[in-house]
Design a protein around this nucleic acid. Structure first.
Lengths: 210, 210
DNA sequence: CCTGGCTGGATAGCGACAGTATCTAGTCTA
DNA sequence: TAGACTAGATACTGTCGCTATCCAGCCAGG
């Protein structure tokens, strides 16, 4: 398949495909000659994935690169690969590390309470969680101390269900694809449902009230 | 309080404050003279809120404007205001409306199944949900047909809990602030916990596996 | 009273990001 | 063999969220 066909069958412009190849998101086609390369179904598949991640999840190009690199590293276990995916997909929101050690401690306690014992001790996500806890604490959000207790079993159920869906008879790359799509698309799905649920419950409580 | 004090006590530069005033995110100070205006605690509060929304939630400035406008409209009910907040906070990810009526139908069915009867019939979020369902369907994500059934009670519980936390003895603006912070910060909290849970469950299943 | 720093308001500029366009020189293919 | 297409390099564009500069004018301290 030539580049123009790849463009047509994915709806991505030739210029953008070249850009993605430059950025290392997509491997160059198999060279047939100096001025001609061949692209295959893998390219179509990858390109479709990249577009979904960008269109639905607004994943930055740099994060996509990290994802690709994680997939490429054949020495890592599947779990390590998934860990890197989690790291890359945490859109880098600058949570000003307020609270310091205290919030970090609270974060660790939440992990323990949830029973998530297998999370890497140095996972960047831990710091992120601590940061968010800091923001929650000093933003005047009315959170009761048992707030986390309400969330944890629910989140655990969701994550367990999603991981359960992954078909582990496939190859590494396909599994990574499922993991990443799950993170991003189902994450968006989740937030969307939550907003709808908010609207419903807000109606029950506040409709007609000025 | 003069503008430089407002800047100091929020950590936001004077230039940025001026920019926010220009964009209508922040009301101009009460004019004391041609070249001097007075800012009060409301400004500090608003500015802190704006920064949290941008730093943690990466909410675009345009969306912040929509939020401010929704708060300002005193004729709307609290629920209408919250509805507008939901609309503004759905970061506009271009979900290519694949599937057409079919996915819209599936979306309606999910709402019915969840029992969220109070969602506006013309809520933009419904289309967004339909779009996401479209993406899920043709992205090869292994979703069993009962997938939604797993999510709905969990999401409903989370949303109900969050709305329950809102203190309705306060004024309109304070309630809006709580609602918006809840949407954004707790949304981030939720996704963060979910990533951690993914990592834990992935470890249980895939550690050491190449 | 004057001088230096701060102010509101307007306008212009900047850096990151995600492409898009153009150019070159070569290569198919009809 | 002419016209369309291609890889690769480089330059440009538009949007976003600020920053910086400029212009008067006011105000407070010496």
């Amino acid at each position: 398949m030539r580049i123009s066909e790849l463009a047509d069958s994915t709806g991505v412009s030739v210029a953008t495909i070249k850009y993605y190849v430059r950025e290392g998101l997509l491997s160059p086609g198999r060279k047939l000659s100096e001025r001609l390369a061949d692209y295959d179904d893998q390219h179509v598949r990858r390109l479709r994935l990249l577009r979904v991640l960008r269109d639905v999840g607004a994943v930055p190009v740099g994060a996509l690169k990290a994802l690709v690199d994680a997939t490429q590293d054949r020495t890592a276990s599947v779990h390590d690969m998934f860990g890197k995916a989690c790291d890359a997909l945490r859109i880098e929101t600058t949570v000003p590390t307020a609270g310091g050690d205290h919030t970090r401690d609270l974060a660790d306690r939440i992990l323990a309470q949830a029973g998530w014992t297998e999370v890497r001790a140095d996972a960047p996500e831990r710091d992120h969680l601590a940061g968010i806890i800091g923001v929650i604490l000093d933003s005047g959000l009315p959170t009761d101390p048992e707030g986390a207790a309400t969330y944890l079993p629910l989140v655990d159920a969701i994550a367990a269900y999603e991981l359960d869906q992954i078909d582990d008879t496939q190859d590494r790359e396909a599994m990574m694809e499922q993991m990443v799509l799950g993170q991003v698309v189902l994450g968006e799905f989740l937030l969307c449902l939550r907003r709808l649920a908010h609207e419903h419950h807000s109606a029950l409580r506040f409709a007609e009230r000025r």
